[in-house]
Structure formats: C-alpha cells, structure tokens
C-alpha cells in the first residue's frame, strides 16, 4: 500500500508541475501587455515601466514562473490587474458558491443514480429496467444548461418556488443559500445521474454473473441479501472511477450553469477576467480547477486500493 501510494504521489507531483508549466506558457504567449491595457494607449513610457515593475512583469519569464508557483504554494495568487485586490481573496469568495454547488450536485446525482442503477440491474429486462434505461438515455442527451433554463421556466417563472437566478449569500442563513443553489444543483446533477446509473447497472450486472454470487445464493442468502452484501460492494469499483472522472465534468458543467443562474462563482469570475484581460486571474483559476481534477483522480486511485486490496500490489 505504501509503495503504491508513493508512486501515485510522485505521478501527482509531476502532473501538477507539467500542468502548471503548460498553463503558464499558454498565458505567456497571450498578445498584449497588461500594463498598457490597464493604463490605456496614451500612457507615458515611464509610467508603464513603473506599473510593470509593480506587477512584477519586468523580471525574466523563468523567474516569474517560479514566483507564481512559489506564491501559489503559500496561498499568494498575486494581485488582480483590474480590481487591484488579491486574487486569492477573489477566488476564496467565489469558492463559497462553486464548491457547495459541485458537492450539492454530486450528492444529488449519487442519491438518484445508486437506487436507479441497482433497481434496474435487479430487474434486468423487465419493464422497470427498460423505463430506467430509457430515462437515462434521454438524461445523457439533454444539455444541462438547457435543462437549467427549463427548470427556471417551470419552477421560477411559472410556479415561483425559486428565484430565477442570483445567490442569496450564506450570511442570510444556510437555508437561503441552499435554496438558491437547488435549481442549479438539480440541473447539474441529472445528466450526471443518468451516466452514473448506467455505470452502476452494468457494473452490477457483471457482478451478478460471478461465481461468488451463486455461492452467496447457495449458502442461503436471499436475492436481496446477496445483492446488497456482495453485489453492490463489488460494483463500487467501476462506479468510483466514473465518479472521479465525473468530477471534472461537474466542474466544467458548473462553469456553464453559473452563467445560466447568474451565480457569483468561479465560472463567472473567469469569464469576467477573460473579457477584462485580467490574465493573472484566468491563470490562477484555471490552475486551481486543474489542480482539483488531478487531486480528485489521485484520491480516487487511493480509494481504489482501499476498496480492492488486489490493486495495492499492482502498480
């Protein structure tokens, strides 16, 4: 287990290092000088130089890269070109919207997908299975931002159960916050749940054909007992992989969904930053998101080894 973890850790560090170089390099080739963008076309040369020095743009690229990385490691993300506030603060504020939204959606999709997948597998070929599979086929094909618009149309505009957008803020109470994230979370969760339910079903069906399932039945367990004690547990491995992979889709999806609901999350931050050419914000938010994806996949790899001891020895 230790060797496995160390090997994974090493590949995590290499991945993060390469990803950071790629992101830095891409942003570096961006045309335009932030200083002249901030000061306008009529700026004096010495004012520009002073601002470049203030922003740390006058040092060599390699050193700037290491300054950036060193800063990230201690939580200093630099200063926004347009707002002149610390990027770390801006990200932290937005994180309080994006992270709860992603977790809320993840919880919802798991809550929907697990029972649906298990139900379908247990009733393979029967009308219940066909209905669940048909629903998931449709769920996979629906774009989540369109689904979000339909939710707004029905539940916000017609029924007035929810607001059509915006975020109440956590200082108005946890309930108000959760309430304003509910429609976005449902919109994000349903397509994910459709995929997850399909994976759960096919993983369970594979397991149900195994010898040990027959043994479990032979030793006197009922279908239901065998399914829950031996089937579901073993089916968790492929499900876990997809859950990890889905996290990146969830992040990507939430960037778009935030636009539908005008939520002040990381997605909106990054789009504002693109339009105001605040590249340091773009750079840091992108790095943070990529870090999150790589980290989740690392944790999934470790979770694998916990669920399935056979994987620990394999590298």
């Amino acid at each position: 287990m230790l060797r496995y973890s160390l090997k994974r850790l090493l590949s995590l560090i290499v991945s993060l290092a390469v990803a950071s170089v790629v992101i830095f390099a891409v942003i570096e080739v961006a045309p335009g000088d932030p200083a002249s963008f901030m000061l306008g076309v009529n700026a004096q040369e010495d004012t520009l130089a002073a601002l470049r020095a203030e922003l740390g743009l006058d040092v060599p690229k390699v050193q700037r890269y290491f300054d950036w990385i060193g800063g990230l490691l201690v939580g200093d993300f630099g200063t926004s070109y347009t707002y002149r506030t610390p990027v770390a603060q801006m990200i932290a504020d937005r994180m309080w919207v994006s992270l709860p939204l992603a977790l809320y959606a993840l919880a919802l999709s798991t809550l929907i997908a697990f029972p649906a997948g298990i139900y379908a597998a247990a009733r393979r070929g029967k009308p219940g299975d066909v209905a669940v599979m048909g629903a998931t086929q449709l769920g996979v094909a629906v774009p989540n931002f369109w689904f979000a618009m339909m939710l707004v149309l029905i539940f916000a505009i017609n029924l007035r159960w929810f607001g059509a957008g915006g975020f109440a803020g956590w200082d108005k109470g946890v309930w108000a916050g959760i309430h304003s994230l509910t429609l976005p979370a449902i919109a994000l969760a349903l397509p994910q749940a459709a995929i997850l339910a399909r994976v759960m079903r096919s993983a369970l069906l594979d397991i149900l054909g195994e010898d040990f399932m027959r043994t479990a039945r032979a030793k006197g367990l009922t279908r239901r007992q065998a399914l829950w004690r031996h089937g579901v547990r073993n089916a968790l491995i492929p499900v876990l992989t997809i859950l990890g992979l889905q996290f990146s889709f969830l992040l990507a999806g939430s960037i778009i969904i935030e636009q539908v609901f005008f939520l002040p999350g990381l997605g909106r931050l990054v789009f504002q930053a693109i339009s105001s050419r605040d590249l340091i914000v773009v750079e840091s938010v992108v790095m943070l998101l990529v870090f999150a994806v790589i980290m989740v996949n690392f944790l999934v790899d470790l979770a694998y080894a916990l669920v399935d001891p056979r994987l620990r020895d394999r590298t």
Partner: peptide, 22 residues
C-alpha cells in the same frame, strides 16, 4: 500514457477558456 492522464485533467471548457483568453 502519463501525457494522456495530464490532458484528461483539462476539461474542454478549460482548454477553451485558455485559448479564448489568448
């Protein structure tokens, strides 16, 4: 294969954001 894993960490919207920013 490690390169693949790395590209996998960049969802297409992130790549699009980077390209659009530039």
């Amino acid at each position: 294969m490690r390169g693949n894993d790395l590209v996998f960490a960049f969802p297409s919207i992130i790549i699009a954001i980077l390209i659009t920013a530039v």
